[in-house]
Design a protein around this nucleic acid. Structure first.
Lengths: 327, 327
DNA sequence: CTGAAAGCGCTTACAG
DNA sequence: CTGAAAGCGCTTACAG
């Protein structure tokens, strides 16, 4: 049978009220040391752990943070981010629970089932969902892929990535730029915005509009793209790839076509996956300050939970070009 | 204010009992169609969703499955596995919640807070934890990295991977085999077992004991390893790498040393990460049947929850050599 | 076919 | 400093 606070009360000869006060270290209530000791001992002896369900029912709150992750195949960066956030929040007594949302069950069912104190969305929430959660007293920290004025929002401006890639390529003397988009449609929300950044920066700098090709993670696909780019009126000399994997495909395509990188074709990726460093030539890429972003996220949760806390400052400068041999 | 079943009862002019019966489709209870309709309508109109906390308190059970993931940097395979399990269980009304366990908070606190109906461990549980959960009526599905006779255990025999690698290399005519171990200590549980498999198979086939080197994900590290292997009395001609990333490092090291792959040195990885296909030469690797493993896992959860269900058969043949150009 | 009532385990005014 | 009691929202015997 489950050990309840009543058992602890009986065992230590006090009321449940006192047990609750002692165990929760209720501020403002003074308990004699002897009593406290007796309660703590009894709780220990009995192996008492409070029922979270009862607690949640009573207070309408838990110490769970629900982190909703969309069906992205973003990979290691996301894992690292979640890992960091989990660690940070654990230090404040909060447990992060990750749920991969593929839309098979409505989000509403989930957060009601978990009764979290906060919900962290790593992709934008449906407005109705967000409202419903807020109405239920849950702290909602949403996300956006574009600049967003709303302070409690996690923003990773994807356009900036594309801009940065072009800026770097141009600094290396290139003018004819191509964008290598991923084949997986689930990535479109990211890919389209990064492409927009590329386009924007090209226009701003007076370069020809970027050529575009979808590249899946096969050599053939990359070869086809590389050929098309090279055959253009003004042949492409530099490629901004959606991410490192796509960039590695382009590298493989260029090698298969006998092109020299970066002599004939420069390539820049995004993410700095471990393997990027191992490519021949080593891949130039855009690195993200995941730690800073994780800290911001954790801080936002904490601030949303405790209004007396200063909300964290949005990290700027979260992107950085890591120059290696491929550009 | 929260909408409760009492509100629905009032709105539809029935008792809470009836509301509960209708909403839970209680078997054996017959409700007139008109009543059912009224209740459903009212629930809808009011936007009623049951309080999971109250339900959990009442029944001591939720429809949450807690999946505890250790602090591995295993990457995409794990993501895929969890994704599949989440999907499968969602079809049975269960929501999977993933928690990365880095030991900062005791597991006991977490499962008590979540009140899951089942806990899925992707690494072995502490025996005391497992007992406590079982005592609390939670279905426990543990994991093991070695053969394990316990039926409700998820086993991915790591040794088999090493054996398979050697078997393949030998089939290509090699005798002098090396093992490229990862530098990250968190991977030791896997790496050591795979190495044991390599050793075992070498011994069984009468080959020299495998040479061993740690390779981190840099070219320099791989170059050092490759040099050491080539300088040996009987130079190594084939490398079984811990995983694809390490294998790609070895490939880079071999290239830097001017070695021909697979002519001078054959390399086989594990995982079939997308980039493996893009390597030059394309990387031979050991592929895992993640889907089958996910199905087994989901089936185990379901079977543990409902004794009338047949427990799933353990998938065999979950590993498979994917032969490409590097061997 | 439907309702009144108990109880899951907790916290917290409210009294002493 | 401590206790008796209410109530969070649900489900389920038990009566009708």
């Amino acid at each position: 049978m489950r050990v309840t606070s009543a058992d602890v009360a009986r065992e230590s000869g006090v009321s449940r009220t006192t047990v609750s006060y002692v165990l929760n270290e209720k501020p403002g209530v003074v308990i004699t040391d002897a009593t406290r000791r007796r309660v703590l001992d009894a709780a220990n002896r009995l192996g008492y752990t409070p029922s979270a369900a009862a607690r949640a029912l009573r207070s309408g709150r838990s110490d769970l943070v629900l982190c909703v992750v969309p069906d992205w195949t973003i990979g290691p960066l996301l894992d690292t981010l979640i890992d960091h956030v989990t660690m940070s929040l654990a230090q404040h007594g909060l447990s992060v629970l990750v749920h991969i949302d593929r839309g098979s069950r409505p989000l509403a069912e989930l957060w009601r089932a978990v009764t979290p104190c906060a919900v962290l969305g790593l992709s934008p929430f449906d407005a109705a969902d967000a409202r419903a959660m807020a109405r239920a007293g849950i702290a909602v920290i949403g996300s956006a892929l574009d600049e967003d004025p709303h302070p409690e929002t996690f923003v990773v401006p994807q356009q900036a990535i594309g801009r940065l890639q072009v800026e770097h390529l141009v600094s290396r003397g290139h003018r004819a730029v191509a964008y290598a988009a991923p084949a997986d449609d689930r990535l479109a929300a990211f890919a389209d915005r990064r492409l927009a950044g590329v386009r924007h920066e090209c226009a701003r700098l007076g370069l020809p509009a970027p050529r575009l090709a979808r590249v899946d993670l096969t050599v053939e696909s990359a070869v086809a793209a590389v050929r098309a780019w090279r055959e253009a009126g003004e042949p492409v000399t530099a490629v901004a790839a959606y991410n490192d994997e796509v960039a590695l495909a382009v590298l493989a395509g260029a090698a298969a076509e006998g092109l020299d990188v970066p002599g004939d074709l420069a390539v820049i990726g995004v993410d700095d996956i471990p393997v990027a460093r191992l490519a021949v030539p080593a891949l130039t890429t855009v690195w993200q300050a995941i730690d800073a972003q994780a800290d911001y996220l954790a801080g936002s949760v904490l601030a949303a939970l405790d209004p007396s806390l200063e909300p964290p400052a949005r990290p700027d400068d979260v992107f950085h070009v890591l120059e290696r041999a491929s550009t």
